[in-house]
Simulated assay, not measured.
Amino acid sequence: MTGSIGPADETPEFVRLVLDVVRRIPQAQVMTYGDIAEYLERGSARQVGAAMAGYGSAVPWWRVVNASGQLPEQLRGRAAAEYFAEGTPYDPERERVRLARCRWDGSA
């Protein structure tokens, strides 16, 4: 994650919506990029990924993974520490979360 969120008037609306969803993902659970786009009924998995890459450093970014349960390779080591700390079902050999056990659907 490279960017951080600036003043609300400088941050695109879609990015603000994505970051709001990510902030609400409970500990030990994850959503995929596509899940977030579907939940928002806006954008695509790629657009969510771009929002996270540009602005996601201020939110629990490790809780957003690709459809196979992984993060980009350069983030996996840092994410693994977060997964273990939170108790997220994680397979260290395959470097992916176990989506069937920890996928969040956005419900309260």
Rank of each mutant, 00 (worst) to 15 (best):
F14E: 08
W61I: 05
R78P: 00
V97Q: 07
T88I: 05
L71S: 01
P92A: 02
L19D: 01
A67K: 10
R98N: 06
E41K: 13
Q29A: 02
R103P: 12
L75N: 08
Q70W: 02
R23K: 13
L75C: 06
P26Y: 13
A8Y: 11
Q70T: 15
P89L: 15
L40N: 03
P92H: 09
E82S: 06
S57Q: 14
P72Q: 05
D35T: 02
Y39D: 06
R16C: 02
S44N: 14
R16H: 07
V22Q: 03
D9W: 11
P7A: 14
Y39F: 15
A80P: 00
E41I: 04
T2E: 10
G87W: 02
G34E: 14
V64A: 04
G43W: 06
R24C: 09
A51R: 01
R76D: 11
P92T: 11
E41F: 08
M1I: 05
E41C: 01
L17K: 15
Q47R: 14
Q27A: 12
G34Q: 14
V21E: 00
E93L: 14
A80D: 13
A8I: 08
Q47S: 15
R46P: 01
G87T: 13
G77P: 00
V30W: 02
G3L: 05
Q70E: 14
S4M: 04
A108Y: 11
L75F: 13
G34V: 03
G43K: 02
V21R: 03
G54P: 04
E95M: 11
E86D: 13
G77I: 09
V59W: 08
A8M: 00
A81Y: 07
V15A: 13
R63Y: 06
L99V: 11
G3F: 08
L40V: 10
G43E: 09
T88S: 00
G106T: 02
E93A: 10
E13F: 00
A45F: 07
P72F: 01
T11C: 07
R78G: 13
E86T: 07
L17E: 10
A85E: 11
A85P: 02
R46I: 09
P12K: 10
A28F: 10
G69Q: 05
A81P: 00
V59H: 06
F14D: 06
Q29H: 12
W61M: 04
A85L: 08
D105L: 01
E73P: 00
C102G: 05
S57E: 12
N66Y: 07
E82D: 00
A108D: 14
